[in-house]
Nucleic acid binder design. Structure first.
Length: 454
RNA sequence: GCAGCAGUAGCUCAGUUGGUUAGAGCACUAGUUUGUGGAACUAGGGGUCGGUGGUUCGAAUCCACCCUGCUGUACCA
């Protein structure tokens, strides 16, 4: 080892990236296996696309800038800009456009994969995370939108949540379209500002959103956010629609769009006999590409950070209909709808749920007394392993005390001692690490005795 | 990006109005027990006090800038 500290490499992780340990990974595997089961049951195809895409095929155009727009990780090879994908929807649109003629219509696929965002991490939010997406491509039928909600609910309940642990809320973007028509707000900039403000209703409450719609808002750290500068009569109108939920006054835009979406969705939920969702006009979802129904999945139990403080957790996923996204790639009509779930966030929350337990398998440890006796140890080891039980021979070079400490630390259920005394008597010693009880067993009986312990 | 708070041992933190060799608990190592973990006791190792520059006889402590983390907020195709 060198004494010069300056040449030691850093042991820190890049901002927003984390190491994940066994418990979290096992819960993630559990969630994934549930997802796969449900997806097969609902008839979705499994797809994988690469982590990198050409920047422009996933919506990043970089005319004269040195780097593609912030938010994505990008680099330039000899010819083109490449970006790590920031979601799974954009690559899906690219994939569908590329294989349009061959694909069945509608095309139903699901995908699990990491996505990356080059932005500031928050509580439970990282710059690399695992996403699950399921989409219907090539249908205008709102049954698809409703079925996505039914399906996601089935996945969550399979993962151990009960119906009170989560909420699915839905609305349609046509509602805000109708509202903008009613209020004669045509500036897309202003529309966007209003949408963003309304999207914060559940987190901030109406009083704060009201400030955002008007002159602006100061948050609790003292930072000021500019408002949309709407006059108070317009704000009042928005209040009636989105908070009081008195529905829209009659106008053609509403009748033809939002109203149809809403009755359609309600109808399908009824036919599916699906009750665990609520119509909520304040569900907006910031994304600009949504065109119809939108939905959001929220968890209802308290989530804490590593310091034990409760945090604003927000939604674990959501989705909606994006009828124009795929057609960006070509001159064909291609309506679509889909849902995304942030798996790491779901797992993070599941880990904190009191009644949620995951089984971690740890090996029985065979202690080493005599380095010349590995033949016996391996015999015992093979016998245990071939019966399907996890086991290992202590792989270090320490004395018994250290071996016991090791077994204790890894959470091993039991150790097997086979030293001079055991060789003489022909019986191994099996120590239950939880109770500390030791018994002497013939090698043939080892397995049945271990099974009593684990 | 903006704002608030924070950075002292592997971890959690203490460190008085600036004053010699910088502390505790947990963890680690060794021993009490050379064939026995989770308890106890004894001893020990481990820190450029986030970084750089400044003020000072003297800085973990004061000042400036930077870096990192947490929380909120903005943006999020």
């Amino acid at each position: 080892m060198t004494k010069d500290k300056k040449i030691k490499p850093s042991k820190e992780l890049p901002l927003g990236f984390v190491d994940r340990q066994e418990k979290e990974l096992l819960i993630r595997d559990f969630v994934i296996s549930n997802i796969k089961e449900v997806m097969i049951k609902y008839g979705f195809q499994y797809l994988e696309t690469p982590s990198f895409e050409y920047s422009d095929s996933i919506g990043k155009f970089l005319p004269d800038k040195d780097r593609p727009d912030q938010g994505v990780f990008s680099f330039k090879d000899e010819k083109s800009w490449l970006s790590l994908r920031y979601d799974l929807t954009a690559p899906l649109a690219r994939y569908v456009a590329k294989n349009y003629l061959e694909l069945p219509k509608p095309f139903k696929r699901y995908q699990l994969g990491k996505v990356w965002r080059n932005e500031k991490p928050g509580p439970g939010r990282f710059r690399e995370f695992l996403q699950f997406d399921a989409d219907f491509v090539g249908t205008k039928n709102l049954m698809a939108d409703a079925e996505l909600c039914v399906m996601i609910s089935e996945i969550l309940e399979k993962c151990g949540l009960n119906e009170k642990d989560y909420t699915i809320k839905w609305s349609t973007r046509k509602l805000t379209d109708a509202l903008f028509a009613e209020l004669k707000i045509n500036s897309s900039n202003k529309r966007l500002k209003i949408l963003r403000s309304l999207d914060k209703l559940d987190r901030l409450g109406w009083d704060e959103v009201k400030k955002l719609l008007g002159k602006g808002r100061k948050d609790k750290s003292g930072d000021f956010t500019e408002g949309a500068e709407l006059p108070s009569n317009q704000i009042q109108k928005i209040y009636e629609v989105f908070v009081q939920k008195k529905l829209m006054p009659k106008n053609e835009n509403y009748e033809e769009g939002a109203s149809k979406d809403i009755t359609n969705m309600k109808n399908f939920f009824e036919i599916f006999d699906f009750k665990n969702c609520n119509f909520d006009p304040s569900i907006i979802r910031g994304l600009e590409y949504y065109t119809g129904p939108v939905f959001e999945v929220n968890l209802n139990f308290e989530v804490k950070n590593s310091k034990g403080q409760p945090i604003q957790f927000g939604s674990i996923g959501g989705g909606g209909r994006y009828d124009n996204l795929v057609s960006n790639f070509g001159n064909f009509e291609c309506p679509a709808t889909g849902i995304s779930i942030g798996l790491d966030r779901l797992v993070f929350a599941l880990m904190q749920k009191k009644d949620f337990k995951i089984k971690v398998t740890r090996p029985v440890v065979i202690c080493v007394f005599d380095k010349n006796n590995f033949k016996d140890y391996i015999n015992i080891l093979n016998k245990i392993r071939s019966s399907g039980i996890s086991a290992e021979i202590y792989s270090g070079e320490n004395k018994l005390k250290k071996q016991m400490e090791y077994a204790n630390k890894i959470g091993s259920p039991a150790v097997i001692l086979y030293g001079e005394d055991e060789i003489k008597s022909g019986k191994a010693t099996l120590r239950n690490l939880e109770t500390g009880k030791e018994i002497s067993v013939k090698t043939e009986e080892i397995i049945s005795e271990i099974k009593k312990i684990i």
